[in-house]
């Protein structure tokens, strides 16, 4: 049995018929073909598949595709606008917030949610909010710095407006 789904990902509309058991992360990677969203575990611990659902960070492995019907998503491929990196992406680059790059898309989208909640976060807030995203390379030091960098630059941009 297959069910129809329709959703928006990075501003583009997708319609497919999918098995009810198909996880959203597999839909995004295998059906839509956006492979920037990664799979690092099978128990929803690692956060590599974090994306934005209607503006909120979710782990794409925790939803069936059919539950996402009608929703609006942003994946890592949708973060840069017109070739300009989002300040969070820029922060990860500036502060060496990544090494192998595998956890990075999930980290960047989790950071987006953190900065929505706490535009001027403390180190402790960043660390606490990142608890659901695992990185094996950086020891988190430079990820925290990257998010701090992004916070400063997003504040700066907001102040200019």
């Amino acid at each position: 049995m297959k069910l129809p789904v329709k959703m928006t990902i990075n501003g583009q509309t997708y319609s497919h018929e999918v098995e009810p058991r198909l996880l959203l992360v597999h839909y995004i990677r295998e059906v839509v073909g956006l492979t920037g969203t990664h799979i690092g575990c099978d128990t929803s611990q690692c956060g590599a598949c974090t994306i934005l659902m209607n503006g909120q960070a979710v782990k794409a492995c925790t939803l069936f595709t059919v539950q996402a019907d009608g929703a609006e998503f942003t994946t890592i491929e949708g973060m840069a606008k017109d070739g300009d990196l989002h300040p969070i992406q820029q922060g990860f680059w500036e502060k060496h917030g990544l090494q192998c790059g595998f956890c990075t898309p999930g980290m960047i989208l989790a950071a987006y949610q953190i900065l929505e909640r706490y535009p001027n976060p403390t180190e402790e807030q960043i660390r606490h909010q990142l608890e659901g995203n695992l990185c094996r390379c950086t020891g988190y030091h430079n990820i925290v710095k990257a998010i701090q960098w992004a916070a400063e630059h997003m504040q700066g941009a907001a102040a200019k407006k």
């Binding site: 956006l34 492979t35 920037g36 969203t37 990664h38 994946t75 890592i76 491929e77 973060m79 840069a80 990196l85 992406q89 990860f92 680059w93 990544l98 790059g101 595998f102 990075t104 898309p105 960047i108």
Partner: peptide, 8 residues
């Protein structure tokens, strides 16, 4: 890597 274009 920061734009989701790594190729694993």
């Amino acid at each position: 890597f920061i734009t989701g274009q790594g190729r694993y």
